[in-house]
């Protein structure tokens, strides 16, 4: 059939569903093996975190769109959860190849890493449906455009700078992202770099401070500039 805007939008959603249909909504054997290789096994924390953030997401989704949309929120999060585990596995395989190590205990026990990765997965799912909203007008999608980035940062209480850290690796290891989705994630990066990362409570200021202190230990101090 001829390609129309409606068909293109539906194809993008269908493609996401097809990709994630074969993915599991729980850690795969390969992931469990990575978890077991850790000095501190992160499995329990990972499962609890996903459950907690899933409840937060579903509650906020229904709050924004109405209780009649609670089931849709459940479906959206379920897709995001599958994407999260799929991308995590690919990231770890890529890191194993690059670093020749199998113990990722430190990374896998960092809360912000997981919350950012799950947040990015949610954003991909929401943007896939949201971008089709103006075309398909299925009833919920119009309202869902209000739930686009940076909505996920607010509901997951996630710092923009931490979210920024996962985007590039996410794009590198997930081959099924469409051109439009890569552009969308790049747009999120730009918003973070241009404004969101510079908000008062951003961790970027502590990093700059630490960086200056390290420089100060190895180099002659420079005159203070305005």
């Amino acid at each position: 059939p001829p390609q129309t805007p409606v068909r293109a939008a539906m194809d993008v959603i269908q493609q996401l569903k097809m990709t994630l249909h074969s993915a599991s909504d729980r850690p795969s054997e390969a992931l469990i093996s990575y978890f077991n290789n850790c000095t501190v096994n992160p499995t329990e924390d990972i499962i609890k975190r996903v459950e907690y953030l899933g409840n937060v997401f579903k509650e906020k989704f229904a709050e924004a769109l109405g209780m009649e949309c609670a089931e849709i929120g459940y479906q959206r999060f379920n897709l995001a959860k599958r994407l999260y585990f799929r991308v995590m596995e690919s990231m770890l395989k890529s890191e194993e190849k690059r670093l020749s190590v199998q113990n990722f205990s430190k990374l896998l026990n960092i809360d912000t890493f997981h919350t950012s990765l799950l947040g990015c997965s949610v954003e991909v799912v929401m943007a896939t449906y949201g971008s089709s909203g103006s075309i398909l007008q299925t009833g919920t999608t119009h309202a869902e455009t209000n739930l686009s980035f940076p909505w996920i940062l607010h509901i997951f209480k996630l710092k923009a700078f931490d979210f920024y850290k996962v985007i590039e690796s996410f794009i590198k290891v997930e081959p099924c992202l469409t051109r439009e989705m890569v552009k969308h994630l790049e747009g999120c990066e730009h918003r973070i770099m241009e404004s969101l990362a510079w908000q008062t409570d951003s961790p970027i200021f502590e990093l700059i401070k630490q960086s200056r202190e390290q420089e100060g230990q190895t180099e002659q101090p420079e005159p203070t500039s305005s």
């Binding site: 996962v166 890569v182 790049e186």
Partner: peptide, 21 residues
């Protein structure tokens, strides 16, 4: 990856970004 601009160096990855190197 289309026109996406990668900022990480060849020898950098997610581990370095979360300070795990």
């Amino acid at each position: 990856f289309h026109d996406y601009h990668f900022g990480l160096e060849e020898n950098e990855g997610i581990s370095e970004l979360f300070d795990c190197d």
